[in-house]
Amino acid sequence: MDEILDDIDRWRAVGQRVAVARVVDIEGSGPRDPGAAMAVNEEGEVAGSVSGGCVEGAVVGEALELLGGRRGPGITTFGYSDDEAFAVGLTCGGTIHLFVEELDW
């Protein structure tokens, strides 16, 4: 979270709404530990990262869906599981679970 605070402050100071995606769990190998976070504002500007660049694009999409009211806060999973291949994966073969929410707290 540390590295995204300055951007969040700047965006909130000009009245931008902000979504935050945080890594809450990883299975197998994952590039970032729980707590790694990424923030996205209404204009799609991004701060921070939640992987080695593998899923950030998809996270921006989820964040904009959330800010647009087309989804609620909740867990979003990227990676591969035994029974289902997700559209976006991690090259390292792991699975990451993100919690995506609006920063209204």
Binding site: M1, D2, L5, I8, D9, L103, D104, W105
Partner: peptide, 16 residues
């Protein structure tokens, strides 16, 4: 703002 308003500021200030 939800009833959790102000938590971010306290969290941010503690981290910094």
């Amino acid at each position: 703002m939800s009833e959790a308003a102000g938590i971010y500021e306290a969290f941010r200030d503690a981290i910094r």
